[in-house]
């Protein structure tokens, strides 16, 4: 393994964390969106807000991490993606601005009407961002981003595979969030909310499974390189993902819901992300730009690795502290 491979793995670690934690946050916004009117949606929304408030900004930083590693470690890939997929990327950025500010503002205003408008902004944008991020991932997997950049700004992502991947991202986010919220509801001692999010976890899981199955069909048609490797080198990960998903389903359907629900939900998602990575190896942009060809000079890659090591020592324990305090209810959800 050379330096470029190591940095590519770090890039994928960042993508994994963003998919997990950023994804769960976006999913929270999704459930906020569909929670119904002010009266009916009051309690689920309160739980969502309580779970999201202390952690969403830290979770968001994984996106910055991914962008920085991409443009520092693989500048030509960064350029190729941004000069081709600038439409969905710009829309995802719009969603990020609206979501973050809408969420922060909503907690800080009084008037019901203003809260409703800001809340709707937060919730709708929670849908936009994962969808367009998904189209970007799908377009990359489909090989629609030429290594030299400046691919077609529309036909590159307005295809079945990218659009299905967008839907998959939304469904997966909703699924992750619902599973996390089942646990939060139990901890807070709200059995009715536990059932509420349980039903939604099952529904979102079914939709995500369906989108993944359709995605495989589209992958077969539009991304043969990735498809073939996914079912060869990537097969163990595909199986792992399916096993995690089914085991979680079993747990959710049992009358006494005990067991590693969160690890299983996370495992299903992590396996898909790494399956995608393995399937398009050694390409960053299948099949026109390899990891090696896109890589920055070695001293730069070394610094990225060192920075990542420092981050592992500094950021991960801090993040653990934040989650621990948050899970033990030592942080307020209101400010």
């Amino acid at each position: 393994m050379n330096l470029a491979d190591a940095v590519a793995i770090i890039l994928w670690v960042g993508i994994t964390f963003y998919a997990l934690f950023g994804g769960a946050d976006f999913g929270g916004g999704f459930w906020d969106l569909v929670a119904g009117g002010a009266e009916r949606g009051e309690r689920p929304r309160a739980l969502i807000q309580r779970s999201l408030t202390p952690v969403w900004e830290a979770n968001h930083v994984w996106l910055i991490f991914v962008l920085v590693v991409l443009w520092t470690g693989f500048p030509s890939a960064f350029k190729a993606v941004f000069t081709t997929l600038y439409v969905p990327i710009a829309l995802a950025a719009l969603g990020i601005v609206l979501r973050g500010s809408g969420f922060a503002f909503r907690k800080s205003v009084e008037a019901l009407e203003a809260r409703r408008a800001l809340g709707a902004t937060f919730a709708i944008s929670s849908l936009l961002t994962p969808f367009f991020m998904g189209t970007v991932a799908g377009a990359v997997a489909a090989g629609n981003v030429p290594g030299g950049g400046n691919g077609d700004p529309f036909s590159s992502w307005l295809q079945p595979l990218p659009l299905l991947t967008g839907a998959l991202f939304v469904a997966t986010s909703a699924y992750l969030a619902a599973v996390f919220l089942v646990g939060d509801a139990r901890r807070a001692g709200h059995p009715d909310l536990e059932r509420y999010f349980l039903r939604r976890a099952l529904g979102a899981g079914a939709v995500a499974g369906l989108a993944a199955a359709l995605g495989l069909v589209a992958l077969h048609g539009e991304a043969r390189y990735v498809f073939d490797r996914l079912l060869a080198e990537g097969l163990p990960l595909v199986i792992l993902s399916a096993v995690c998903g089914l085991a979680l389903l079993g747990l959710l359907l049992r009358p006494v819901r005990r067991g590693p629900m969160r690890p299983l939900a996370a495992g299903a998602v992590v396996a898909v992300v790494w399956g995608w990575g393995v399937a398009q190896w050694p390409y960053l942009l299948p099949t026109s730009l390899t990891v090696d060809a896109a890589a920055a000079p070695d001293p730069t890659l070394t610094v990225v690795l060192v920075v990542f090591a420092i981050a592992a020592v500094l950021v991960l324990p801090s993040l653990g502290l934040l989650y621990a305090l948050s899970q033990r209810d030592l942080l307020e959800s209101e400010h």
Partner: peptide
Amino acid sequence: FGAAFGVAFAIEGIFFFVEAIFLAI
């Protein structure tokens, strides 16, 4: 030039990460 000056942002990323975490706490 991403390969040359991007490292500054990689370092900034760590600082921002830690700041966001302790700011929340």
